[in-house]
Simulated scan of single mutants.
Amino acid sequence: MKLRSRNIDAHEAAISTVKMAKIEAFESIFPGMLVSCGEFGICVGSECDGVPLETWRVQGRILCEVCATKEYGSKFYEENDVVDPGSSDAKFKCPAYDKEGSCKSKEVSIENFFMGNCCEQASKVFVENKKAQEKQLKVVHQYYKWDSEDLQDNKNYIKNTPIRIKKTEDRIKQEEEALNQLMKKVENAKKSLEEKRCYVRCNKNALQESKKRTIEKENVKNESLKRFKQLSYEYHPVASKLSLDDDVEARENRKDYQYCKACDEFYNDTDRRKSFLSSCGHVACLKCFTRRFNDDVEYTYCPFNLGKDCQKRYYRFEVRSLYE
């Protein structure tokens, strides 16, 4: 028992040392801003700066996704004793704590700290430390991506739910007619009917709520994009060196006919030229139709592989004859 106790104490001491190093690293770029790291605020892995937006408890250690994946693999959440992820509970000072007009809060969440949402004065604070600028740009861009994904999920739900509701309502009418004709199955038919009516009622209510949430998500996403553009302008020397998808606005506004559905790239006049395969009618860029050619194999497949006609192979000269 004493040996086990010493091993546990050594393990906890090692974790404590790593946490202190991460806190000191964060303090070096945001001095005096971290009030409390909470229970899930500091990652003790070796692949991050120690103050992530989300963490997991993996094998008794608090790790961010990057560090957990590095140590336990991409399926760490399936193969280990993992607690569901949660937002960081670290607390920070208002970014404008020392300035006039600040809210003077010491309970600012990590999102409000980096987004500058705790008060109006906080949104006007821009740091000069380049490492701090890089950290803030990455965090704000991550929130923008999350907000965009949430918004897209809501849009997809709004688009698809009315169709499912209409189909369900049509099935209800059919089953009501069958109910009158098949009295022997009346109990089973009534039960199915009631379930489907409940589905329609619940989804109609959920649809209305989702429309409201979509408006809210649209505003949140726009604020994230606005903040990202603002920071990119203010921190231009740093932003120009980062790969943060400079074309986010163009991808937001692109049309279906402007990009290849197989590789998700915009069409151009060279290797991404818009082409089609006459045997199946699918449209993609030239590179996607020819990407399987090599020195040993002289045939390719339709990149979509959706139907029976798209599963056969085409020889090089046949494929060429199908392009415009």
Rank of each mutant, 00 (worst) to 15 (best):
A10R: 12
K185H: 13
K99E: 15
E24R: 13
Y267D: 02
Q230K: 12
E47F: 02
R273M: 14
D98L: 12
S240P: 01
E107M: 09
E111C: 08
V220T: 11
N154P: 00
E54Q: 11
K91A: 09
L242M: 08
N219E: 13
G86T: 13
L53H: 00
L225I: 15
E298H: 15
L53M: 08
K75A: 11
R251D: 13
G41L: 05
E169R: 13
R61Q: 15
K261V: 14
E249L: 04
S28Q: 01
F289Q: 00
I15M: 15
A250F: 12
S28K: 09
V51G: 00
E169M: 14
E177P: 03
M115A: 12
T55V: 06
L244C: 10
A10W: 01
L193V: 02
V220P: 06
N203P: 01
A239H: 03
V35T: 04
V297D: 07
G116C: 08
L207I: 08
E252Y: 12
K261N: 14
N160Q: 02
K135V: 07
C288E: 03
E176R: 01
G45R: 05
N80L: 04
K196F: 02
K308S: 14
N205L: 14
D49S: 07
Y314K: 04
L63H: 04
R6N: 02
D271L: 15
L286D: 05
Q258E: 10
D264C: 13
Q133G: 05
K167W: 06
E120N: 12
T168G: 04
V139N: 05
V248D: 10
S16T: 15
E12L: 15
G41A: 01
C263I: 05
R291N: 09
N305C: 14
C67E: 09
Q230M: 13
H282N: 03
E324N: 14
N154W: 07
S275C: 15
F228Q: 05
D295G: 03
N268P: 00
S5V: 06
K93A: 06
F266H: 07
V83W: 10
H282S: 00
E128D: 15
A68L: 03
R171C: 13
S243P: 02
D150V: 11
V139K: 04
S74E: 12
V127H: 06
V319Q: 06
D98M: 08
N112V: 04
D49L: 10
T290D: 02
D264E: 14
L225Y: 10
E24H: 10
R61I: 07
R316C: 11
E175H: 12
E78M: 13
S109V: 05
T214L: 15
R164V: 04
F293G: 04
M20Y: 12
K145S: 11
L53K: 05
Q136S: 10
R57W: 11
G281K: 00
Y157D: 00
G281P: 02
V66D: 10
C263H: 01
K70M: 10
S87N: 10
